[in-house]
Design a protein around this nucleic acid. Sequence first.
DNA 1: TTGAAAGCGCTAACAA
DNA 2: TTGTTAGCGCTTTCAA
Lengths: 327, 327
Amino acid sequence: MVDIARLAGVSVATVSRALNGHPEISVATRERIAELARSLNYTVNAGAKNLRTKGNRTVAVVVPRDPAAPQPISDPFLLAMIGRLADALTSRGYDMLLSRTPADQIAALHASGTAVGIVQLGQWHDTGSLEAAARAGVPLVVWGAPLPGIGYCCVGCDNREGGRLATLHLLDQGRRHIAFIGDRSTPEPAERWQGYREAHEARGLVPAPSLHLTETTDLAHTRATVQALLDGGAPIDGIVCCSDILAIAAMSAVRAHGLRVPEDVAVTGYDDISWASHAEPPLTTVRQPIEPAADALVAALMQQAAGESTASVVLPVELVVRRSSGA
Amino acid sequence: MVDIARLAGVSVATVSRALNGHPEISVATRERIAELARSLNYTVNAGAKNLRTKGNRTVAVVVPRDPAAPQPISDPFLLAMIGRLADALTSRGYDMLLSRTPADQIAALHASGTAVGIVQLGQWHDTGSLEAAARAGVPLVVWGAPLPGIGYCCVGCDNREGGRLATLHLLDQGRRHIAFIGDRSTPEPAERWQGYREAHEARGLVPAPSLHLTETTDLAHTRATVQALLDGGAPIDGIVCCSDILAIAAMSAVRAHGLRVPEDVAVTGYDDISWASHAEPPLTTVRQPIEPAADALVAALMQQAAGESTASVVLPVELVVRRSSGA
DNA sequence: TTGAAAGCGCTAACAA
DNA sequence: TTGTTAGCGCTTTCAA
């Protein structure tokens, strides 16, 4: 900027004003300076500007990585969400930092001035760190189920209802031995499981033994687990899965066992990732509205960054019926 | 930091040194300061530090967005690559900025000090801006095919070979009317098309009419286009697709037309996204080694940031044969 | 309409 | 081992 000032024969203050479109500056000098900046390929240093103005236009999107068991981000729904968030933030003039910081360190992203706020994707098992960060005044919005009595803002879908809808749908197709696949030690599958039970109760039935998986990203492993269940002789005629990915694995296992989807075993997924409608057979699934979700996450964060407090948001889900459920 | 200095009864310089693990500082004061920082929830301001040290640990990963036709990032392969890059950068101690800056503005990301360097995903149609940025000294690595005579560093896979392998495979299954689906106006599909032709030549054959699509992310649209081709009476018995996504759409269209995969029409994809092996039928596809690719992108960028120049890298591909090709 | 000068939070000579 | 001081690149009073 000093270079420009010297070349233009003005002070750096003038250059700064010109470049920022300050009104009280002669059109002549403004244009001269703009031209000079362009020809020198000059851009105002963002860091220095932020330091001076205490501004910051960066939001950190965090997918925590467990240092003990590092796993790449592979869940298509999460990945799609990341893509949507990039758009939502870009269109609001924010930069998006994609971070793999463990949950107990997200507060530092804010304290260090790296980001104005944080969108964390998933609560995983560390709600304590999230509570702490929120209490410390870090603008924070979490994609996940708002647990009762929780101290931070969540944006999520109605998991109970999603589980209920999927299960009810299978029950109403006459299925009576419906397995439930998902990691119930995490909040969202736990809520869906509630819905699964409610659906059975509503029909005066008792749930079949369910499958509880801790690993949801490794297709091969999931498939093997489902297959083990079938090989064990369980008389399953329906499977409610907590993600479309799990449903892929489940359908694959069912076939490997010599059974047909949906004739012998009806399957439902969760998320409605873009692939679901093109699966074979097309997958019945619970759609989570990804674009509204991304918008809601960003909107809530902006409010918090502006000093307002925000309540958690629960978005509605929708059962998308396709062939895999035998309807 | 002044607060800590005051509370500890030392100068800010001492605090700075203590927090940075400078060797010439007494253990006592270092611990006192560390403790103080922890209790105050203090973290060094990253921006100010960068300003002072001229350091920067942020890399921008750019998926350009055409302002005229804004599209969310939806390609699973690209999304998976983003996930891998996040890991590769994180493990090297870099932050990753996911940006949707149009190609003609990426240089500003560097000039403004926002990022030390840029990884652009895809060349799209604007190689000119990439040339310009590289010439301006911006550390830049592009995921894509190294075009002859190009002035920037590319990391890509051997597209010609990929197209050749897939086509040869179908020809050797006895298929003689093989369509090619991809947007040949972009470099990578154009190279794969070369391979497609070479394969035919190698067997003394002439390629069937191919399908040239400009839109590769909209499944429904792609499917309709393929269906139109079949409805047009083309005697197609094989399809080479430029992505697994296209292959999904193609298989779907083939079935809708009342034909079977692979009996009537054999299909190959490209990328080997995680879903491919669980498709029905499992998809024969050309695998692009995503993790080595992400590593190569980051490694090349680091070299450039260190002032070294880097040559483009072409990674090998591998044909993964599954049932969709009828083998 | 413009300039001079202070200072954002930090680090690194140079002194002590 | 620690403090003093200058200055990274920028914006913004306050004066002119």
